[in-house]
């Protein structure tokens, strides 16, 4: 297996330099990372780059980049990426988002599906499924680190370990947390309006979930999928909030069978 080399291009949009990772060749796979930071260098992405051209922007504020002065919340990221999709002239791209990147993908798909052929949400946030007293999504900013690790990982041994990081890596991790806070603070990790807008998504969608995700549960994912027309839902066993990391092979199989399924109607 040969691993495609990554190229990073910095694209200036709205006065904001956006780093975009390009990797592999084939149909476009527009990849939106979650609160943990970029994922395009992970083994699952290596596998997918054998069949796709991965196009993975780094959300401003992540991986050591600056939070633009005019950015206040996720809306700013969404409109930045509308511009990015136009600038890159995406055509029939598969759009895949993880966690808060999944929320971003859902919002983009609601605005327009003109440049995408399919949508994949992985352990995504973005909607409220319970009542006002239900904590649908764990408050990551008020949960002790050790507890968070147990909730997020099926095998906590796979979690990044800050004590083995360099100072610079630790600082980037903290900067990522600030950016995550900026994009998701209030309403916490969701847009109350989104459920009434998801009906606009007119491309096949797949909602993938780690069976052991304690941060945002499979039941939440199932309810989320139920709000999107023509969406399938699948759980990946022995995986938490990041099934692409804990079960990369199974994850890639799900993605490929969904993308290659050309049958009419709801994919299974």
């Amino acid at each position: 297996m040969s691993i495609s080399t990554e190229k990073v291009r910095t694209i200036e949009l709205q006065g904001v330099p956006v780093d975009v990772v390009f990797k592999g060749a084939g149909p476009q796979l527009f990849l939106l990372h979650g609160g943990g930071g970029p994922v395009a260098s992970m083994p699952f992405a290596d596998s997918l780059s054998e069949q796709f051209e991965i196009i993975a922007p780094v959300h401003p504020g992540f991986a050591g980049s600056a939070i633009p002065d005019h950015f206040d919340d996720l809306q700013d990221l969404i409109y930045l990426y509308l511009d990015l999709m136009d600038t890159l002239d995406l055509q029939d791209a598969v759009m895949m988002g993880f966690s808060m990147g999944g929320w971003t993908a859902a919002e983009l798909a609601v605005l327009s599906t003109a440049r995408i052929s399919r949508l994949i949400l992985v352990d995504a946030v973005g909607v409220k499924v319970g009542g006002r007293d239900d904590r649908d999504i764990v408050d990551v900013f008020a949960t002790p680190e050790e507890e968070l690790t147990k909730l997020m990982w099926h095998d906590p041994g796979k979690a990044p370990n800050p004590s083995q990081m360099t100072d610079e890596q630790r600082q980037i991790m903290q900067s990522n947390r600030v950016a995550l806070g900026l994009y998701t603070w209030q309403p916490y990790m969701h847009n109350p309006k989104l459920p009434r807008r998801l009906h606009r998504i007119d491309v096949p969608a797949l909602v993938l979930w780690g069976e052991s995700d304690g941060l945002v549960t499979p039941d939440y994912g199932r309810a989320y999928a139920g709000m999107i027309p023509n969406a399938a839902f699948a759980v990946i066993p022995a995986a938490g909030h990041a099934p692409q990391v804990e079960q990369p092979e199974v994850f890639v199989q799900h993605v490929l069978s969904f993308v290659n399924d050309t049958s009419e109607g709801s994919p299974s």
Binding site: T143, E145, D167, R170, Q171, M173, Q174, S175, V178
Partner: peptide, 23 residues
């Protein structure tokens, strides 16, 4: 005070936040 309350995102500069969170 529990660390998560001392170190909410964006209160401290990243270098200080890393010092609080790290190790």
């Amino acid at each position: 005070v529990a660390t998560e309350y001392i170190n909410p995102p964006g209160y401290h500069p990243p270098a200080v936040a890393a010092q609080i969170a790290g190790g």
